[in-house]
Design a protein around this nucleic acid. Structure first.
Length: 222
DNA sequence: GCGACAG
DNA sequence: ATCTTGTCGC
């Protein structure tokens, strides 16, 4: 069975109607960041739960074979299983999800942050380092709106020498999303929960590669 | 045909 | 995302 681009796009169009764009959050204590790294065909999904004092509370990991290629606009079909699996592997509770990728700022208004949000039924924010879709219009000093067809689908924050793209994933407003992302920017190009997930995922993927090389080196003994 | 194109 | 050498700056 092979991946169908048309079916994937239709699924996004159908699910996009389920995204809630208003705040369904009245304060929070814990937030979880999601990211995926790769070791050849192995995807390493990591979820890092943090509190508001920059402490790591819990970590969840999910390693799976990834067959779906990266296709702009269809990233979720490649990374969702690892991300969602990692999220299911955390033991502690969390109130908000930060996803490394776009949310509403997507050609069908359903980026990976919306996939995660709708299927988790939790307030979710999409955070990316690069733009996927839409026009950047200056709204203020260091703040841009991402617009498509007269609709604001996201925001861009200029910080030091880089930018970060923020958009609604689910059950939270764009305004609140920006405030929360800002709170967790601690000197890295991504908010701390995602940054930590990225570091752990990359390290784990690197270990898998290393172990594979060791196995190759000693395979003559078998 | 050309440019854009999350991770 | 991953691969990968040298180079710039604190």
């Amino acid at each position: 069975m092979h991946f169908s681009i048309e079916k994937a796009k239709n699924a996004q169009l159908k699910l996009a109607g389920r995204v809630i764009k208003e705040n369904e959050i009245k304060g929070f204590k814990y937030i979880v960041g999601l990211d995926v790294a790769y070791s050849n065909s192995k995807g390493v999904g990591v979820a890092v739960i943090m509190d508001r004092d920059n402490n790591v509370i819990d970590v969840g990991i999910k390693i799976l074979d990834v067959k779906v290629p990266y296709i702009p606009g269809l990233l979720a079909f490649r990374e969702f299983p690892c991300m969602y699996g990692a999220l299911k592997n955390v033991k502690k509770n969390f109130d908000i999800i930060l996803v490394n990728g776009q949310g509403l700022a997507h050609p069908r208004r359903f980026g990976i942050a919306c996939h995660i949000g709708v299927l988790s039924n939790k307030p979710t924010i999409g955070v990316a380092r690069r733009k996927l879709y839409g026009q950047e219009v200056k709204a203020d000093e260091n703040l841009y709106q991402i617009i498509d067809g007269g609709e604001v689908i996201g925001a861009v924050l200029k910080i030091d020498t880089f930018k970060i793209y923020i958009s609604i994933g689910h059950m939270i407003s764009l305004r609140e999303s920006i405030i929360i992302v800002k709170e967790f920017m601690k000197g890295h190009s991504l908010p701390e929960p995602i940054y930590n997930a990225h570091v752990i995922a990359t390290e784990k993927a690197k270990n898998i590669k290393h172990n594979f090389k060791l196995q190759q080196t000693h395979s003559y003994l078998i």
